[in-house]
Write a protein that binds this DNA or RNA. Structure first.
Lengths: 192, 192
DNA sequence: AAGTTAAAAATGAATGTTCATTCTTTTTTT
DNA sequence: AAAAAAAGAATGAACATTCATTTTTAACTT
């Protein structure tokens, strides 16, 4: 137990350090030595867990994406009707972005820069499957506008990322009321 | 003429090279030597125009932001009524993001990473003043929802950035119809 | 108009540092 | 005591910036 447990903890510490440092300094301004120091290991030890710096950041991305989508879909099941399902997922996503803002900021940075490999990016997208299926159903039932998933995403989920970043930069404070408002605007813009 | 003109051209070439290389590789993976090569100057020459790499990227950001907002507000004047003014600005912004996508991608990267200095970021925000004033008016006239500018921005302008990035990554093609749809959704989500 | 020269602009080649990765040795585990 | 995990120091490449020269510009003189 001890050894495997310890390995898992070490790997987790490395990933945490990577998220934190990359958020504040960007990928290329985050030396392996700093990641090692923050995770309390030797730089060489990183290479027991990851092939390279690029591999470390790719795997960090995938792990965070996984955490994010598990959280987003945790209270959803596909028996729910469209409106209910969408509201639950949307609000979980909002929750995640506010509560786990380090992780969410990291994802935003990955999604907006050439930081991670294209293949990891592709892999990460797959996790959103349940939401895409829900939308598909909504379109077939004639409840949602018959538009591309990208547009649906742009109107509903993406504004949240922007608000999170502004919150993070302390340029404005995001309250429960803002979130409720944003949810209404999101729903209004996609329902038929 | 010759000399000043040439200087201006050289500076412009450096800025163009910076945009292109940073878009494709990120700030810290874009060496000064490559920027110099692409702009057909010696690395040392960059330092005649800019204090440092950080200064180069800050100034590039401000210049691109300036170009962007000039374009966005070119056909707008503050005599217009709210709906007309908003539509004109929104569509100019959409236009810019599609036609000048290198510049727009660069701004998106600056806005989502710790790439540029905080002071340049602040400076860049000021250029959006006309849009904020228009919104202020809209709220006073009771045409717009009485919500924060950040929310208005999140619902209307930010989705465009997402769509542009997806277009750029060739994951979907953005047509005139998509833009019209997106505009309608934007307006619907902010009007009272 | 041609020649002269000082200042400005530009250059390619150093410089010194930072950093990813590897190597050798030490520590921990079983 | 053998094997696995971890460490710190060493290596070599990449890079931002500076330095010593060269080239270009333009003002001035004849």
């Amino acid at each position: 137990m001890a050894t495997l447990q310890k390995s898992i903890e070490k790997k987790a510490a490395l990933i945490r350090a990577t998220i934190h440092l990359v958020n504040n300094n960007g990928f290329h301004d985050t030396p392996m030595s700093k990641i090692a120091k923050m995770a309390n290991v030797s730089p060489a030890t990183i290479y027991l867990y990851f092939d390279s710096k690029q591999d470390l950041v790719n795997k960090t991305y995938l792990e965070v994406k996984e955490t994010f989508t598990s959280y987003a879909f945790a209270t959803y099941n596909d028996q729910m009707n469209l409106k209910e399902g969408f509201e639950i997922i949307w609000k979980r996503i909002a929750d995640f972005k506010l509560k786990e803002c380090e992780e969410a900021m990291f994802l935003a940075q990955c999604d907006n820069t050439p930081m991670i490999d294209e293949s990891s990016r592709q892999e990460g997208i797959k996790h959103l499957q349940p939401l895409l299926q829900l939308w598909e159903r909504g379109k077939q039932e004639g409840i949602l506008k018959p538009i591309s998933d990208y547009l649906l995403y742009a109107y509903t989920i993406n504004p949240l990322s922007f608000l999170m970043i502004m919150q993070q930069r302390s340029v404005f404070e995001l309250t429960k009321e803002h979130i409720e408002e944003a949810y209404q605007a999101a729903w209004d813009s996609i329902k038929k």
